[in-house]
Amino acid sequence: MSANTNVHVSLAEAKQLVEYLESGQQDKADELIAEIQNPINSELFAEIGKLTRQLHDSLNNFQLDSRLNDLATADIPDAQERLNYVITRTEEAANKTMDAVESIFPVVDTIQKQIKAVNPLWQKLMHNKLDLAEFKSLCVDIDVLLKTTDKESVRMHDLMTDVLMAQDFQDLTGQVIRKVIDLVREVEDSLIGMLTAFGITTDSNAVRSKPKVGDNLVEGPIVNAAQRDDVVADQDDVDDLLSSLGF
């Protein structure tokens, strides 16, 4: 019985024990005796109990965090739609702009051609070397030029307004992209929260892993060229690199 030699029973404990026995609470009486005999066990139990409760709460919180569920089932599909909208709108804008520009090219070319046609006789007139027949011909040419320029400049103005209006995508896509950025940030926070809950450290100073590349190192446009030394910054860099290779 050496283990029990240091056991001290307080008066309060003895009274509590009698109370349990008198009221027929045998379980509690046994528990109290065990506790008196071995206080370390009860501390251990308390600690385990605490941990169990924490685990239970974390798991509950985890399940209750319906935001995660929303993110996965609603927000992320919504973000895909938003980004597709950006692709559609920017493509539309590019095509609208190019429609207008392609319509302007021939107009400018026509005016240019008529100016060239008028110019020789005009130069003669300026140097007082024009005869009457040439003067009549020049008048006809200039008349055509004026009428064309008048009509086409109105059309060009309209087409340029089309180009101007096609740029309205910037505002709309900007708003949409900003929302997606917010979503990405929220997902990032949730993921970090999850990693922390599982005790995995998320060291923000950890060495950044390199961006994923596909076949043939394909990565797409480099958005942080200034911070990288494995990419060229501009066309001059490309030309320098190629000439260093003997191109």
Binding site: N216, L217, V218, E219, G220, P221, I222, A225, D230, V231, V232, D234, Q235, V238, L241, L242, L245, F247
Partner: peptide, 28 residues
């Protein structure tokens, strides 16, 4: 838009005649 030095070298070795990085200009 591919702008890694390694890729430019890769293209040169494969026998490319010219390499322009996007965004580019009409003059380029």
């Amino acid at each position: 838009a591919e702008a890694k030095k390694e890729q430019i070298v890769m293209a040169a070795q494969a026998g490319v005649n010219g390499y322009i990085v996007k965004p580019f200009t009409a003059a380029t």
